[in-house]
Amino acid sequence: MRGTLAFLKKELIEHTRNYKLFIFFIVFAIIGILSPLSAKFLPELLESLMDENITIILQEPTHVDSWVQFFSNVNQMGLVVMILVFSPLMAREYEKGTLVHMVTKGLPRLSIYSAKLAMLYLSWTLFYWMSALITLGYTYYYFPDSSTEGLLLATVSMYIFGLMLLALLLLSAVILETTFAPLLAVGGFVGLLFLGELVPVIQEWSPLQLNSRNAQWLTGLEPGREIIQSFAVTGILTVFFIAAGAALFRKKAIN
């Protein structure tokens, strides 16, 4: 435990010095601010660009649009930036041989692994919820009659999906040893999930529901049985990725 904390401290200092935490802060804060803004602003922008002879009927934007923007921004920017930035997290240690000293001095490998995992999860937890809170605040400010119905489920499911991807990132970083192969592995996994959407049986159990159906719950759709299946599959996969990564890292040749 002491080893884990010490290593985690080293990770925190390292990621502060190389601007990674700073980048996350800026990106997730911008996502939080941009989502309500674009929901509110886009219809007006379209209107002002339109020719006077053409009328298009645009629905008045609601708080749901703000959250739709939030989830798509987290998917397309937040998660991508986080996985991109964290992709070299093991490769750099392997490359520079920095782990050798610590392992030979008696730091348990599991401590290193759990500190790396804690670093990933701390960043995701902190910045994701910061971003969600900013969106929540501005959504209330610009859409005062907004409700929070289904909001908890929608945000939590996105959060859990992120936890699963980060566990996979660490597992592939342990196995693959190169800088950007883990990024490709996670990308490939998400690609497979999208392919799986074509098959109804897989779709029903797919973790992808956690990051694609968030907006539906905000509009009052009751979550059905398939969401419990999706949570279960995602949870099992996450635990599997973490355990597999730990087991492999214990046997890994470090030189």
Binding site: I23, I26, I30, I33, P36, L37, F41, Y141
Partner: peptide
């Protein structure tokens, strides 16, 4: 829109200056 645009600008400028 100012209450939302000003923080956005501050963030972008901070990032750029850093």
């Amino acid at each position: 829109y100012l209450p939302i645009i000003i923080p956005l600008l501050i963030l972008q400028v901070t990032l750029m200056i850093t």
